[in-house]
């Protein structure tokens, strides 16, 4: 079942087209990474999805409806878009009390979400005295007040230290295990690979790729490293089979375009001894950089 659907979404700010005919869907109970380089249009897309920015054309809906038309919306959808969107003079607990008053969430939830996000001891502290990581946690606590089925998070790992990133990873995994639908934008790609089931990759406002993270990784450049005493002979043979071959050491070749089985079969057929062979399975980082590599941008 599709929960979030973006169809032909376009947003122009003056002459700049920030989102350009974007379309993707997010199914129920999945944790989806929403990836793209800075300026790709991720935040604008999420803001259109949540009714904060009006699309130039196209639609972004949740359960088939614009966000503002959803009944009990804040109990069904939780969102964190601003890591620093707190009044500095208001305490953590008071911030959540205000959110409860605005959404109708029960005040009894405050203690639960503070515990869930590890903020229990900071309830009386003013938001102005929180670290960026603590603010991120407070944002998540606010989003969870209504026990929402859907969570939309914009760069929640920004500003977190390694311990905070580790905590967030576990937290998002836990949300996924609870069966919630989570859409998380990020450019910390290695992290997304560790908690997301699916990934939507955009660049310059356009969809580049959408699908399971494992397929995305599979689509990444696959390299096979081979150690052989007859590197030159194997190199020539592999090249004639259409593989790209690079000598990384006198006895070591990096092969792309052919898998381990093809490389081993070819070496055996030619009687070339192979002492070692490893396959790099690729990473989301590599896939991402490859997918979004455009002129003037490294990739």
């Amino acid at each position: 079942m599709t929960v979030i659907e973006v169809r032909g979404l376009v947003k122009r700010f003056g002459p700049a087209t920030v989102v350009d005919g974007l379309g993707f869907a997010v199914g129920a109970g999945t944790v989806t990474g929403f990836l793209g380089p800075n300026g790709a249009g991720k935040t604008t897309t999420l803001r259109m999805l949540l009714g904060l920015v009006t699309p130039t054309s196209g639609q972004a809906v949740i359960w088939g409806k614009p966000y503002r038309d959803l009944g009990s919306r804040r109990r069904r959808v939780g969102a964190v878009l601003e890591a620093s969107g707190f009044h500095p003079g208001r305490t953590v607990a008071d911030h959540l009390r205000v959110r409860c008053a605005a959404t109708g969430a029960a005040r009894s939830r405050i203690g639960a979400v503070l515990a869930e996000t590890g903020m229990g001891e900071l309830a009386g502290r003013r938001a102005g005295g929180l670290s960026l990581g603590e603010r991120q946690r407070l944002g998540l606590a606010g989003a969870l007040l209504g026990e929402p089925e859907v969570l939309i998070l914009d760069e929640p790992a920004n500003g977190l230290d390694p311990a905070g990133v580790r905590w967030l990873r576990g937290f998002l995994r836990q949300l996924g295990e609870q069966g919630r639908t989570v859409l998380v934008s990020s450019h910390i790609l290695a992290e997304v690979a560790q908690f997301a089931d699916r990934a939507v990759v955009i660049d310059r406002g356009r969809l580049v790729s959408a699908g399971p993270v494992t397929e995305l990784v599979k689509a990444a450049r696959q390299a096979v490293t081979v150690r052989t005493p007859r590197a030159e002979a194997l190199r020539a043979a592999l090249a004639s089979e259409g593989a790209a071959v690079r000598a990384v050491a006198p006895d070591r070749l990096e092969v792309t375009g052919l898998g381990t089985e093809e490389v081993a079969t070819l070496a055996a057929a030619l009687g070339i001894p192979v002492f070692e062979m490893t396959a790099d399975t690729g990473s989301l980082e590599e896939a991402f950089l490859r997918l979004t590599a455009t002129e003037g941008r490294p990739g």
């Binding site: 966000y67 503002r68 969107g85 959110r99």
Partner: peptide, 18 residues
């Protein structure tokens, strides 16, 4: 105007889109 200076407008309008 403080809602925009402190960036709290985002949560305010998420909670109350009207």
């Amino acid at each position: 105007s403080g809602e925009f200076r402190l960036k709290t407008a985002t949560d305010t309008y998420l909670d109350q889109p009207g």
